[in-house]
């Protein structure tokens, strides 16, 4: 019983950080109509969630130039003053690939054909996901100065990071495509699946990243916790090993409990496996991605309200 109580308190504590407005003695996250802090809006004219979301997206669209300027800034800063430029972003996956190729081909003798290709087909999407989460988590705090002084839709900041990483991911994929073709993997018929998988991966990552970027302002420990969590998540995802290595009893849990597994399997199945995905995997990925995005964006919108005062 005490354990249950404690869990409840922890949950309540976390909820405090997640909610924009929190007032003593209220357990519910729903904003009450008689809340004196929100009396600005006349009762009848309160906009509904969907309507507000559309207004928000429309405003975001009017700030597309800023979004793009920030993406360009991010890219320029990343590659400025470095002789190798974009190739630095390839170096990381290539070095990890070499290390794991050595481990799996010579130490464990796993017997995976063309291990580097197998590896990269899973590692590149994973890298997009992991880098985006890590960078997004600190992004709002790093840009505190801007948030306190200039108005713009706050989602511009995490989105600029996501788009920058997406561009990098795209370039890395092109390099991988060249390798695949050179080794005789004729993946072109499956390209639409890869593009769809990239879109779903973007949505899924976007939802999680946006949530984390705003939550980290209220709960600063996330800056330390997220990289740790991402590392654990990495080993729970079939990136360096094939899913078939996992005992069948656990496999289903891993496959459906962790949306990154089916998402990565879409990439790997098409590029390395040269096969069509199963329908239920595709549907599951789509549902998980859209749900994560909607939920992440919704929570973000709620937390973003007070960002300038809390960051």
């Amino acid at each position: 019983m005490p354990a249950v109580c404690r869990l409840g308190s922890v949950a309540r504590g976390l909820l405090f950080y997640v909610r924009g407005h929190s007032r003593r003695g209220r357990a519910s996250a729903i904003i009450r109509r008689d809340d004196p802090l929100r009396m600005g809006a006349p009762e009848g004219r309160r906009r509904r969630g969907a309507e507000m979301m559309i207004a928000r997206l429309r405003e975001l669209y009017s700030f597309r130039e800023l979004l793009w300027a920030l993406v360009v800034r991010e890219l320029k800063v990343k590659y400025k003053n470095s002789a190798l430029g974009f190739f630095w972003s390839l170096l990381n996956p290539v070095v990890t690939m070499l290390v794991f190729t050595f481990v799996f081909s010579f130490v464990f003798r796993a017997g995976i054909e063309h291990f580097p290709l197998f590896f990269l087909a899973g590692m590149l999407p994973w890298n997009f996901f992991a880098l985006s989460l890590n960078r997004a988590t600190t992004s709002m705090i790093e840009n505190a100065n801007l948030i306190k002084k200039v108005y713009f839709p706050r989602e511009v900041i995490p989105l600029s990071i996501l788009i920058t990483n997406l561009i990098n991911f795209g370039l890395e994929l092109v390099v991988l495509f060249a390798f695949l073709l050179a080794w005789g993997y004729f993946f072109l018929p499956y390209l639409p699946v890869v593009l769809l998988a990239a879109a779903l991966l973007f949505l899924f990552t976007g939802g999680v990243a946006m949530f984390l970027s705003a939550a980290a302002v209220y709960f600063r420990d996330l800056q330390q916790l997220v990289p740790l969590g991402v590392m654990i998540w990495f080993y729970g995802t079939a990136v360096i090993y094939p899913l078939e290595f996992i005992p069948a009893s656990v496999r289903a849990i891993l496959m459906y409990g962790n949306p990154m597994n089916p998402l990565i399997s879409l990439f790997r199945g098409s590029l390395y496996g040269l096969s069509w995905p199963k329908w239920h995997v595709l549907v599951y990925c789509a549902v998980a991605a859209v749900a994560a995005f909607a939920l992440g964006y919704g929570l973000f919108a709620r937390m973003a309200r007070n960002l300038a005062k809390e960051v």
Binding site: E65, L66, A69, L70, V72, V77, K80, L146, K149, V150
Partner: peptide, 22 residues
Amino acid sequence: ELGAGFHPDLTGRENVFINGAM
């Protein structure tokens, strides 16, 4: 805030565009 979004590693020219967008 003057120079919102200025990045120290970018040139004045590049920063004018970013700040303008801000």
